[in-house]
Design a protein around this nucleic acid. Structure first.
Lengths: 219, 219
DNA sequence: TAGATTGTTAATCGATTAACAATC
DNA sequence: TAGATTGTTAATCGATTAACAATC
């Protein structure tokens, strides 16, 4: 019985917000599965994800998952469906550019955290760092970026270079075939249409937090 | 005691997106001022910030800044206005909770970067880390959190603890008077109304980037 | 059946975009 | 004046929220 067999009719691009929520659902579902739970209702998942039941159902419908009115959703089925959509059932190779303090922290953070994503190469202009292996990821000279990216088939990169270098590095990576950036540099990148940039702007984030600390503190 | 009365007519809370853009504008304006520029047009600022001239004008109107049709905006004036709104003309004290790899990277990253925000205390449960000073920030035992936060008047905190501890730590910090969180833990926090949470969810972000790498890579 | 859940549809809200009038 | 910029207003777009009907 079971599987309503997820359609492989590669749906058009899913909105970034939805992708983010699906990532969150997966994390929660993996925990729930590990604790032995087999099924879950949309309102339960919503409570864990700080969302609404309707939102959860809509997201799950987006990836072709339907629940039964009496038993909710089968957790294993959901995990498989999310894996299919998010990771495309393959391990995604990612490059790190910029092996400074932040870059090393990024490598340390992601190691052994999301097995479906792996940092397979790092790049830096500092010759002293070249050929070192940090958290299982080898550091290459920036001059070899094009070669390595093509050789490894890397299409995603995390950018942890100084702000003033970010744009030129991004331009170069786009030419080298990078389609998707995780940008830690505190600047907005100008990229061609079709290239995805996710900003992890820690300086802007801290400013936002500081603002609301004063905003609500003046009661 | 009387709180310092706000200059303008107590502006209501500004949307978080606008605050983020204002933070970006300030960074750009500081650079421009350093290079000797005195005035700027909305379309120039928009080009730097990957925004639209209308958006820039609307944001600047929000903080009470108007330009002249012929000369655009005075840069010094803008910087002062943004400073007034964002930092409230005071240095904001922030606490770090969780001094692991990520926590140390956070301290290193923010040191000497935004002079209007300062990490004045860090907390960890690991006794070996207590009393050490990392990037000028002293590490205290978690048990002293309430005391130190009250003593220093800290209302903002960066959360860099493991996911499973994040909620309980957040609950405790809310009781201790924290109004605003920069949450690096990969979970959504449940907090009372009026408490601000800015998620810097690196795991979700990497999933998003991985998704679009495959999405656009199939062309 | 009763009841809680589900998928579907309409309404609302907010933010962005476009169009227009005012200014130097 | 002419022209580019500004502030203001209306229109559009998207996402979320609410209301409803279908299902087991």
């Amino acid at each position: 019985m079971t599987t309503t067999t997820p359609r492989h009719t590669a749906a058009p691009t899913i909105p970034v917000n939805t992708i983010g929520r699906l990532s969150l659902y997966r994390r929660l579902l993996l925990d729930l599965a590990a604790s032995g739970l087999r099924q879950i209702y949309s309102h339960q998942l919503a409570a864990l994800a700080v969302s609404t039941p309707a939102q959860v159902r809509r997201d799950l419908m987006t990836i072709g998952c339907s629940g039964s009115p009496r038993r909710g959703y089968a957790i294993e089925e959901l995990i498989e469906a999310v894996n299919t959509v998010l990771a495309r059932s393959v391990e995604t190779s990612v490059a790190l550019v910029g092996v400074g303090n932040l870059g090393r922290a990024i490598l340390a953070y992601y190691t052994n955290r999301q097995p479906w994503v792996r940092f397979v190469a790092a790049f830096d202009t500092d010759e002293d760092k070249v050929n070192r292996i940090i958290n299982g990821c080898r550091v290459y000279a920036m001059g070899r970026a094009e070669d390595i990216l093509a050789q490894e088939g890397i299409r995603a990169a995390a950018l942890a270079v100084p702000a003033r270098e970010a744009q030129s590095v991004a331009d170069r990576l786009v030419l080298a075939g990078i389609k998707s950036f995780l940008n830690f540099a505190p600047v907005r990148l100008h990229v061609p249409t079709g290239i995805f940039v996710d900003d992890m702007d820690m300086t802007t984030a801290l400013d936002r937090v500081a603002y609301y600390a004063h905003q609500h503190g003046t009661t």
